[in-house]
Design a protein around this nucleic acid. Structure first.
Length: 802
DNA sequence: GGGTGCCTCGAGGAC
DNA sequence: CGAGGCACCC
């Protein structure tokens, strides 16, 4: 009866799925089907091992991974596994989400307000700055960011302020900031991300009955990405698994890329010590990539010293060669990417949704986005300037949060005068210091200003302290404004349980004047309003929740969601994402851009061998995301912080190139062999940058000099050679004629300047310029009111009109 | 009290 | 180039 669950698994995977009792450590290479194993194991536990769903906890690192696991289990079991609240008690979620729920449920034991709010990075920074101000410390001398880092690190290592090492003066100051910071969070009934983890551990350590309850409930624990657990996460798993010891940990030391947030891959070793007799299962069979891709990845990772060498095998054959391309600058790099994608599509080699572009830092996405927009090619950006980071979204959420948890003074400060309602900075700080003096939240001080001793904003027992409202420090005008705001806020608070989140949001944005203020008639205002409507859509998902839970659940989820793009799942779009975000995903076509020293590897890693090893792992993660095609791209020069920088080619390119020369990775089919027989017989597809054969690019900067002559070895040799300042390397497209070289009939478009054309999205326009590009034509069109776009003729489906 | 504009400094990655 | 801080002006 379990054949369906075990069907198609190889022996190692099957063993991992069916070893139900006792600790198991699975060391899983990339593409070895670990997500599959996790999902099948959960299904197996429920269907074959008789486990109750409530007894199973599966922990992932990202929401995306949780979602995927839910979907897979759903498919295996043929039943719906909705939302993070779980399916019949099954617990699947990120560490943070699971901890948030435990802390809310056990709020009393954890000494927390059950309506606590979760502070994001920005709010964390605000609280740190506040702490520095409170302690009269100069934030030039004690950088808030460094302080925040020290506090975060301590929390991840389960170090409370009392245990904080103070062997330097700076550390002594940091400890004091840590203490004050914690006081601020407590006063706001707030937790930061790190608190979710460490408070859960403290709860389990300090409340034996709670520990026992959870230990008994979670007979089976599964942990994904185990190499990325930090000390707090590890300790949580250890404590919860200590009774039944059926802990199933999956990891790959070569994919450990989160040391910066406290991840410690030595947890894999600790696991073996804390769970003696753990069965170790190796998954080395790769089902994703071609052998060429695996060999290339191995050439990169093999230089790391702190690792166990392993061999990745695939049955997929050698596949296509890796393509290395050198672009002139970041915009040329982006043009190469979109042009190449377009070519793959036009040949039927890939769909847009198959393609992913990966980069080291979010800032690199901008040039790529520009190129995608310019070609009218849809893409989705994962992470980056996130939806939930937008001002209007944060404002709206702050309103909801304060209604949810009136102790959230930080949230209140954000919205008191947004939109402007004559509550100026002076009034706000007077309110803040008055409430501090009263030892009450700011909303409670607001209630007192209004003379309302019966206000629900006054904490239990606080009203009894006053016979009549104490004298407030505000002038008449300020008092009037504050009272008006207080009345609004009280109204929302009273209404919150009777309304859905979406209705509450409407009521707030309307009554507060926020909607009117936002929609100021500008295009930007409408954009922002549109974002608010999107938040409204998200909120509407919670309509069916029990009234007392929906606001809580909504706020918790939005605090822990990292990329909004999950909300609007789009079909056929290219994916732009950081290498970190790419972990756990796979794509037929992968571009890794910015392969330059100081970028990848990142400048902060150059001096530190451990950090450099992490950069290698990051590169390794990127390459191993690819199923079929890998493009490694670098730019000769690049704008960083508004300045032009020239970086040497990444050392990783050299490693790849050496692997290819030594023959370990170069026996793949040339990318173009099959479908471009008439191509000039260049030695390899690596030799892309033959001078004189690249058509001029409309989008790249004009060449300051003639292209540097290239020796044989082509782009790759060139890529691994330091560029000479001021010398422009050959750039642009591969040596390709303007028309398809594979014998396709040339497209019938043949546009010329002055033609009237029509585009699906941009409407009618006038052709300004036509240039050959790859297999196609690059047509620059002026669309009245929409601007000038450079489009690839076939892809853009331009029609001639008139 | 609030808004605007200039200046400085700063971006690694994410729940 | 961007955000945030600060000074100056209304």
């Amino acid at each position: 009866m379990h054949d369906d669950i075990l069907a198609g698994l190889n022996p190692a995977q099957r063993e991992a799925v069916t070893t139900v009792k006792g600790p198991v450590l699975v060391l899983a290479g990339p593409g070895s089907g670990k997500t599959r194993v996790l999902a099948h194991r959960v299904a197996y536990l429920l269907r074959a091992a008789g486990a109750h769903p409530r007894a199973v906890m599966a922990v992932t690192f990202t929401n995306k991974a949780s979602q995927e696991m839910r979907e897979r289990i759903n498919r295996l079991l043929g039943e719906a596994v909705p939302t993070s609240t779980g399916w019949k008690g099954l617990t699947i979620g990120t560490f943070h989400a699971i901890c948030a729920r435990i802390l809310r449920q056990e709020a009393a034991s954890a000494h927390l307000n059950e309506n606590y709010v979760i502070f994001d990075d920005g709010e964390q920074a605000t609280a740190v700055k506040q702490a520095l101000r409170d302690l009269n410390l100069d934030d030039k001398l004690y950088r808030p960011e460094a302080m925040r880092g020290a506090i975060s690190k301590a929390k991840n290592e389960l170090i409370k302020p009392a245990d904080f090492e103070t062997n330097t003066y700076w550390a002594e100051v940091a400890r004091r900031v840590y203490v004050r910071y914690e006081e601020i969070l407590t006063a706001n009934s707030a937790l930061d991300f790190d608190d979710l983890l460490c408070r859960t551990v403290y709860l389990l350590r300090e409340a034996p009955d709670v520990l026992r309850r959870y230990q008994e409930r979670y007979e089976y624990a599964l942990v994904d990405e185990f190499q990325d657990t930090n000390i707090a996460q590890y300790e949580m798993v250890r404590l919860l698994g200590d009774k039944y010891r059926n802990v199933f940990a999956v990891g790959d030391e070569d994919q450990s890329v989160y040391s910066w947030r406290g991840a410690d891959y030595r947890n894999v070793q600790r696991f073996r010590e804390d769970f003696p007799g753990a069965k170790v299962i190796l998954l080395e069979q790769n089902y994703r990539s071609t052998q060429t891709i695996l060999d290339t990845a191995n050439a990169i990772i093999a230089r790391n010293t702190h690792r166990t060498p392993k061999t990745l095998r695939t049955d997929r054959g050698r596949g296509l060669e890796i393509v290395v391309h050198e672009a002139y600058d970041e915009s040329d790099e982006a043009t190469f990417v979109v042009s190449t994608i377009q070519r793959l599509i036009s040949r039927g080699d890939a769909r847009l949704g198959d393609c992913a572009v990966m980069y080291r830092t979010n800032a690199q996405s901008r040039a790529l986005e520009d190129a995608f927009v310019a070609r009218g090619m849809p893409y989705r950006l994962v992470g980056g300037t996130r939806f939930y980071q937008r001002k209007e979204i944060k404002d709206a959420l702050a309103y909801l949060r304060v209604v949810h948890n009136p102790a959230d003074s930080l949230g209140l400060t954000r919205i008191l005068n947004v939109p402007p309602r004559n509550i100026g900075e002076k009034t706000v700080s007077a309110l803040a210091s008055w409430s501090t003096a009263l030892d009450l939240p700011m909303t409670a001080a607001l209630a007192l200003t209004a003379g309302d001793l019966a206000s629900p904003f006054l904490p239990a027992g606080a009203a009894a302290r006053f016979e009549k409202p104490p004298q407030h420090p505000f002038a008449a005008g300020a008092q009037r404004s504050l009272i008006a705001f207080y009345r609004m806020l009280s109204g929302w608070y009273a209404a919150k349980n009777g309304l859905t989140v979406a209705e509450l949001l409407d009521k707030i944005t309307e009554q507060s004047g926020y909607a009117t203020w936002l929609r100021d008639g500008t295009e930007e205002g409408e954009d922002r309003w549109g974002n608010l409507q999107e938040l409204h859509t998200v909120a509407a998902h919670y309509d069916d929740f029990p009234p007392e839970l929906r606001l809580t659940a909504f706020l918790e989820e939005v605090a822990l969601v990292s990329d909004q793009d999950e909300l609007v799942e789009e079909k056929d779009r290219a994916t732009l994402l950081t290498l970190h975000t790419a972990k756990g995903l796979e794509f037929p076509v992968v571009f890794i851009v910015g392969l330059e020293e100081n970028i990848l590897p990142h400048s902060r890693s150059l001096e530190d061998p451990d950090q450099m090893e992490e950069e290698r792992r990051l590169m390794y993660v990127g390459v191993t995301r690819a199923k079929d095609r890998v493009y490694l791209v670098r730019a000769f020069r690049r704008m960083i912080w508004g300045r032009t920088e020239i970086n040497e080619p990444s050392r990783f390119l050299r490693d790849v190139s050496q692997a290819i020369k030594s023959g370990t990775a170069n026996t793949g089919r040339r990318l173009d062999d099959d479908d471009r027989p008439s191509r000039a017989p260049v030695a390899s597809s690596m030799m892309r940058d033959l001078p004189g054969r690249s058509p001029a690019r409309a989008t790249s900067a004009p060449p300051p000099n003639a292209p540097a002559p290239l020796r044989s070895g082509g782009a790759l040799a060139n890529a691994a050679r330091p560029p000479v300042a001021g010398q422009r390397p050959a750039t642009g497209s591969p040596a390709a004629p303007a028309r398809t070289a594979n014998g396709d009939a040339p497209r019938t478009l043949q546009f010329k300047a002055g033609d009237r054309v029509s585009h699906g999205l941009f409407g009618e326009g006038i052709v300004l310029k036509v240039e050959p590009a790859l297999d196609d034509e690059e047509v620059t069109v002026a669309f009245p009111g929409k601007g000038t776009k450079t489009l690839l003729a076939s892809f853009a489906k331009l029609r001639k009109v008139g």
